[in-house]
Amino acid sequence: MDGASVVAFTDTYLPTVNGVTYTIKTWRERWERRGGRMDVVYPDAAAHEPATGEHPVRSVAFPFYDGFRVSVPRVPREVRRADLDVVHAHTPFGLGLSALRLASRRDRPFVASYHTPTAEYADYLTSNARLESGLERLSTRYERWFLSHADAVIVPSAETRDRLADLGVDSEVTVVQNGVDIDRFAPVDGTAFRERHDLSGTLVGYTGRHGFEKRLPDVVRAVAGMDEELTVVFGGDGPARESVERAARKHGIDARFFGFLPREELPAFYSALDVFAFPSPVETQGLVALEAIACGTPVVGVREGALRDTIDDGVTGYHYEPGDIDGFRDGIRRAIATRETLRENCLARREPISVERAVDDLTAVYDRVRRALAPRA
């Protein structure tokens, strides 16, 4: 279906930095290289100047989660009038409802990507346990309703597909990895990065959003019990950064915080690391883990959520059980000891996790829903 016209709706886009943003941006670039068109409807942000095919919608800041914005559900006029083959929602809320309405009114196939288990974020809204539980149930019911209206649901991992089956989603669910730009994310000499940031010795690190749900202080706690001289490095930023800094001071850990690094610096960041540490239990895939693997850096992550699939235990890194800081520490030790073998294994996995493979799979989904709904189109 190369050459088809797709419009994607998302509640998070540039200049916000996260895995959803980069996935949409990268898919869009690859889709248009193949001769298609993929417009994006997203919350407006003064810091981002829209390019051709990008359609900002009026929005306000979301008070409970820094960096996110909430849009009034609407479809820009130029999108309503455009030739469309597929409508693709990357969110069940806000603009996701706009996508559902557009697909219904235009009688076009409706595809929904499931990026984030929103019930996991209820504790951002309240500290009341009863209210939090109620919000989780309400969120789950709403997600099930929304996704059941899709002609196809896309998830980035088998674990997430199984989760939706448990939720009772009855739409067709297909695994399509977010994919990594392996032209950009490839092993490089990390010496210059180390020298520029005055880094030496063994490096354990993470980059990405510093959300409380990521449990990043666990990285510090794991390293604190090691005899080796280690430096912990953090790229990215977010509301949990202060808690990570406090944990580092408490445990006397040499921790460096770089903030959000330019995209072009990330391959050097990953390549400079000995181990990428990823304690987040709420990932639907964990794009940064795939980027690290593509750069030849092993990942130690919790055996929870999609990281159970993203990390091939003993091959591209190691797992530890949720809450087991000693197990996390042991995984880091083992990864350091077997670094070269794991590196070769990681590099052998580059092609299967590439964005080109992901867009091939995305094309197959679009083709399938188009054929199934041909009488309607």
Rank of each mutant, 00 (worst) to 15 (best):
P73S: 12
F212V: 08
I182N: 06
R108F: 06
T23S: 14
V300I: 07
E265W: 06
A122K: 04
V359C: 11
H210L: 06
A47W: 00
E159P: 00
F260P: 00
G211W: 03
G301E: 02
F328S: 03
L95Y: 11
A374F: 13
V275N: 01
V7K: 10
T341F: 00
L164R: 04
V57I: 08
A51E: 14
V7A: 09
S271Q: 10
V20F: 06
A377E: 08
D198C: 04
G36C: 14
R80H: 07
L14H: 04
P217V: 11
A46M: 06
S243L: 02
P73G: 12
I253S: 10
E143K: 02
D2G: 01
G179C: 06
A248P: 05
M226T: 04
V233Q: 05
Y320M: 12
G201F: 09
C346V: 11
S113C: 09
A47D: 15
G179F: 03
E340N: 15
G168H: 10
A112S: 13
E340C: 11
V232K: 12
L135F: 13
T363R: 13
R137S: 15
M1I: 11
D183W: 04
R34E: 14
F64M: 12
P15Q: 05
V111D: 03
R221N: 08
V176Y: 02
R263H: 14
A377S: 09
A165L: 11
V153G: 02
D107R: 15
T12A: 13
V7R: 08
M1R: 07
Y42M: 10
A358E: 08
T91C: 15
Y320E: 04
T160G: 04
S148M: 12
F328I: 09
S200Y: 12
R241C: 08
H115G: 15
G201P: 07
I24R: 02
G236I: 08
L84A: 12
R209D: 03
L14V: 02
P43Y: 13
Y270Q: 00
G236T: 08
S5P: 00
E136Y: 01
A348Y: 02
A272I: 12
T310R: 03
A306G: 10
T284D: 08
R329M: 07
R339Y: 04
D107A: 15
L97T: 06
H319S: 12
A272H: 05
L167Q: 13
L290A: 11
E143S: 09
P15H: 05
L347A: 05
M226Y: 01
